[in-house]
Design a protein around this nucleic acid. Sequence first.
RNA 1: GGCGCAUUGGUGUAGUUGGUUAACACGCUGCCCUCUCAAGGCAGAGAUCACGGGUUCGAGUCCCGUAUGCGCUACCA
Length: 498
Amino acid sequence: MPVRVRFAPSPTGYLHIGAARTALFNWLYARHVGGKFLLRIEDTDLQRSTEESTRSIIEGLEWIGLDYDEDIVFQSANALKHRDAAYRLLAEDKAYRDFTPKEQRDDKDVKQGVAERARAVQIAEGVDQRSNPFRDLSREESDRRAAAGEPFAVRLKVPIEGSTKFEDVVYGLQERSYSEIEDLVLLRSEGNPLYNLSVVIDDIEMGITHVIRGQDHLTNTHKQVLLYESLGAHVPTFAHLPLILAPNKGKLSKRKHGEVVSLTTYRDRGFVPAAFRNFLALLGWSPPGGKEILSKDELIREFSLEGIGRANAIFNFNEHDPRRWTDDKALWMNAEYIRTMPLDELLPMVKDELRANKLWREEYEDEDREWFAKTVDLIRQRYFTLKDFSGQGRAYFSDDFDFEESAVKKNLLKDPSLRQLLPELGNRLSSVDVFNAETAEAALRAFADDVGVKAGLLINGSRTMLTGQAVGPSMFEIFELLGRDCSVERLKSGVPWN
RNA sequence: GGCGCAUUGGUGUAGUUGGUUAACACGCUGCCCUCUCAAGGCAGAGAUCACGGGUUCGAGUCCCGUAUGCGCUACCA
């Protein structure tokens, strides 16, 4: 049977990195075994679902390079089928009508309410989950009350004795006694299907063979297995993934942790998609060879469900530290990609970044093409994100750049003579005919000898004059890149002194 | 409360059917390189493998218990 997997997010917000990782694992598995990767939008909660969210999910998947097969399925379009299935179970006596009036419950404190209710039920009647008075209502009576217009929910009739079992690819054999499973509601009294039913029907409909999803669904899987069995459908293979937690081991949430949990943040803050994808793949999965930097093809080749771990992973970040705003390893990996990826692939990304900051010039793709490539290649060596090309890299693409206060203090103000020496150095350089790294170095060193200062003093001073910064590539490479005229002009500029 | 799952250095992980000094990556420290900062090279700190019992000649690896964390327990998804 050909493998078919799906990613089924509910469009109630941005694409969470945990969800993105689930999507990635599904996609990797499908591509590894040559199966299909499908996308289903679970938009049954119409109040909370938005089109914008759907769009952002699709964009997010596109960004990390996950392409899906076949048309997107919108769960809301299948509501009729879900309802039919529930009625079929009702007709087959595998479900029953529950005429208990719907409880009013406020959405807040549901968790607490659930726990309290469970406790109360236990105290009152032991652990019997089969205590619903409508469970054994006669068919006639049930039909009569329904026909009379009395509202009812449809519940699955969970067997009294026995247990469900399934072999989870990640967590192993899972077994749960029926006595632990309540008669779950399939259809609300307004007639709308509930999550567990919808998921199962859609997965059957879409021919899903492997359900790969977060571990938060592990216990509910028993209910779904029960549904598959009641419907006489083939039960798919399940693989539950460990969760991704915040540094305090809590759940990652937008409300508490802000934008670091949103995939789009990584795009917007200068991540290379391949780098983030690579990082995400390593959260909960480890490659057999131990090599961690893996291209798309390598990930596909190496990926297996067996390599997935069982312990939840902590995703580190520090929202108050601008340098370590997200996980160290993610940042490192991004830097690694930026400095080692094929230049041809990096260039378009830098172009987008420069363009967004009005630093892009069409010549970079025309007569200055070579210069542009060389510049990017040189400065990328110490950048962490694409943002750095327009930030730290600004002086390479524009004359309008800022001087870092600390750099001015360290490399210019510390020696007052530099105010005279650097413009003089500019004069000296202006007479160099063939201007490149070597000749610029020779000229600078000769000048240093002449005036009796250490070359380093002039080199560091020059770096700050030409780039506004205290750190950067070899000074002589910078001279060559910026060219004689620009270098001389910047050396003679009085801006930082004022 | 009940049920389930997990627990290897700060983080992500590896540890084959139990067998010498617990491995790798990120991060951290120092040195080298050097015009700065990275990168790179070298060296190093950091783990009583959650805790307590047991099985065994021998356990991170098997069994039991405890603790902690997380998840589920809804006419949410």
